[in-house]
Design a binder for these strands. Sequence first.
DNA 1: TTCCAGGGATCAT
DNA 2: ATGATCCATGGA
Length: 287
Amino acid sequence: MTYEKRSRGVYITRPDSFNISETLTCGQVFRFSHTDSGFTLLAHGRMLCISEDENEIRFNYPRGDLSIEGFAEIWADYFDLNRDYTEIKKVLCRDDILKTAVDFAPGIRILRQEPWETLISFIISQNNRIPQIQKSISNLCRRYGTPIDEDCYAFPSPEQLANASIAELMECRVGFRARYIADATYKVLSGEIDLYTYDCPEQMKERLLSILGVGNKVADCIMLFAYGRYDYFPVDVWVRRVMSHYYFGGREAKLDEIQQLAKDKFAGYAGFAQQYLFHYARQTEIR
DNA sequence: TTCCAGGGATCAT
DNA sequence: ATGATCCATGGA
């Protein structure tokens, strides 16, 4: 996907398989908000303003200039712009059910998010609702993160989060997940867990599973959303519902049945399939 | 009131 | 190994 510098921002004209609204609201990322003209996104310690129409997507920083080099360095990777989603969707749409889900939101892209933020965010996501997840993360950032702009804060580093006691984490409304956050912070800060170098994905997933409060589903989300392992297929209540409904005749399918089917049907594209299905299931209230 | 949420830890068999 | 119960919080 090509992008160009124009006035004070960066523009993508006639984006291919890329819709900002679908990509941000499909449930993979929590640090964005609606504005009168589009969205603001908080990531990589920056606030990015984004707007779109049928013809183009516009990116800019509210203060200062967004250069083409800066965009290429940070955001092209974040929005996964160098991947051919037309090809991915072509393969997935050979399955009629996936075709329905893809056609429902054909502009979804899997964002490449920061491992540490993804880890904490998806610990918070467990047995929780998306608006509450967003609030809890926002509370953590406001209290422990570095200020970026007016009432905008970067996601706190492990060092910054280490200043939080369990009681203070609870005040951020993370509930019983407070001790999970504390455990993750300790393990990363002490070097017991290195999130940034690994030999193979299985090794990283095993590491993640050793963190209190990180089970199979949360670990799969981190592998998919932070490490770009698109062969992982996180199964939550919605994915289980939509898979049971369409592929198992309405019978409540077991986890390993679903995983196996996803592997057989979608293979290396299972992660993409998961996100199209998750969004479709949630928006259409499949049960 | 009761139920449930992008689950997982813990306890009971 | 597998299954039930509990966990904070807040909205429906």
